[in-house]
Amino acid sequence: MIQLKNIYKYYNSKFQRTFVLKDVDLEIKEGEFVSIMGPSGAGKSTLLNIIGLLDPPSEGEYLLLDKPVHQLKDKEKTLYHRNYMGFIFQAYHLIEEMNVYENIETPLIYKGIKARERKAMVADLLDRFNIVAKQDLFPSQLSGGQQQLVGIARAIAGKPRLLLADEPTGNLHTDQGKEIMALLRKLNQDGTTVVQVTHNEGFAHYGDRIVRLVDGMVSL
């Protein structure tokens, strides 16, 4: 599903080039659950951003679903975001001005799904995540774990084939973290490819495979 070949990411400052990623080769198959680990500043998030088409690589080739995507236009990226990918963030990144229901509904609206169908889909998600009672609340009224549940619900509302999670449990205490990880595993078992970045060795093992990054390079 994902093929990264000789990916470099660097920033040019006045007199030197700072490398964030160096010569990364990575292949992720459809249906895998991959955890990316590594110390602070190793380039984990950057790698995830490149996979998620949020950040273009400086050099290298990226094939997504067998198509080169490293030089897409904004408009085409949006299509991938809308149709294939879901994002989960450490800081949840819910839209503060929308309530739970609306937050989950947003991607479906953009996807052009009809109102009745949309309603059913959101209702199903609220039910699955056991947050029906919270649907009218705004993010600021929820606990971190609840916010992350909403974040995940939103991410999977559009039935993405690829779920990208950037330290999804980073702001949560252990019990909440475990719940979230269980949920991710469940989603993976249902067929969604999951790529997560994490610091937590325990949570990393929820995945099938761990990719370790050190100083921007994949350590084997």
Partner: peptide, 16 residues
């Protein structure tokens, strides 16, 4: 800005 970025993540297009 964050709001607009989130709109982009959740799939808003140019016209959005």
């Amino acid at each position: 800005l964050k709001l607009y970025r989130l709109m982009a993540f959740t799939g808003a297009r140019q016209s959005g």
